[in-house]
Nucleic acid binder design. Sequence first.
DNA 1: CACTCGCTGTCACTAAGTGACATCTAGTGC
DNA 2: GCACTAGATGTCACTTAGTGACAGCGAGTG
Lengths: 205, 205
Amino acid sequence: MTDGSRLEDARLDVSRHAARLFWEKGFDATSGDDIAAAAGISTRTVWRYFRSKEACVEPVLKVSELRFAALLGQWPKTESIDQFLARSMTAFVSDDAFVRDSIAAVRILAILHREPALRSAWLMACHAAEMELIGVVADRAARTADDFEVRLCAAAITAAMRLVDEEISAAVINGGIHVTSEEATARIISAIRAAATLPICDAVA
Amino acid sequence: MTDGSRLEDARLDVSRHAARLFWEKGFDATSGDDIAAAAGISTRTVWRYFRSKEACVEPVLKVSELRFAALLGQWPKTESIDQFLARSMTAFVSDDAFVRDSIAAVRILAILHREPALRSAWLMACHAAEMELIGVVADRAARTADDFEVRLCAAAITAAMRLVDEEISAAVINGGIHVTSEEATARIISAIRAAATLPICDAVA
DNA sequence: CACTCGCTGTCACTAAGTGACATCTAGTGC
DNA sequence: GCACTAGATGTCACTTAGTGACAGCGAGTG
């Protein structure tokens, strides 16, 4: 599912190591050399891949959001969001690579309050997801991607996804609460329905 | 209006110089030493004020958003957003300090596509505004600040403000289009009305 | 006046990030 | 199979972002 270019895959691999190190040792205590060593590449290549240390986690944060955005891209116009996610979400979350990256992402989100640098990476990842969602919303609303209302709707939905992700992450990691995939799905649906500024959540064709 | 602590004011002053330099010379071509020299302080103090070079513009980006958030904090429950902004916006935008900072912010927003590092600063500033808006929304919706729907509404409204700001900035700077304060106000009202997920835009008392 | 206390400058230092160039590797054409 | 090219990587010297430690300075406060 949605494997990017060879280079992007390499970046994602390094990003996974960076995310693990940030989680285990903290952002400040992890150096570029540490990330390079863990990923088995030279430090120079780390800085070729990423423009800054915090940007090292962007791919792993992005990929979860982008996979969900890509999933929404497959949402048939004849279905409501409830119908679509009810049948597609279980297969989605049983993908192994997805689960591992999600855990890594959730851990990063849970330490956001301690690490301001990581928050900026998270917000950049959400911005990337927002850009992807514009196309999805435009298609579903039968409008163009440069339409302000389309972009507003995409931004609002992205904000909803971001909040749900942050909240679930905090609950799971810091609160020790177990959240089932059904609960998570229900919350994301509810939040997207509330936030969507265009009538795209029910069948549109 | 809303002058923070002495230290915050100093930070804002340095931030103005940084924003001007980033606009004039570009982000990469501006060093920490340049910023320090322009602000008349030592380089060491620059890094005491800001955790990174991109964070140097955060205060100047934040202050416009926070001033607007503070304005919304004064929004009486007996008025609709149209009524309130119609009478308060003109006084708001005629404040000199506000105008100068707004121009600086608008210039930064207009070069966001060239400078990814500055986008992360912008998103962090919007995040700060979102945190402020939570209180405003909670108050107006007669709910608590930890209520998910309150935070969702604040996030959606912040996203709307962000998009309007980005769009107007691009139009003004890159498109050479003149935008009157009435047009800007009308667009922000329309966007906030569309994005708000709780019924706070009309009178609530 | 003495006495904090928080802010700033100086300077030496570490770590983030870049430029330049050699090398390696994966195609691609023959 | 071989030669050729283009893009990715490693090495190393380098610049700039960012920190630690300590000394001074200036505004309260008793």
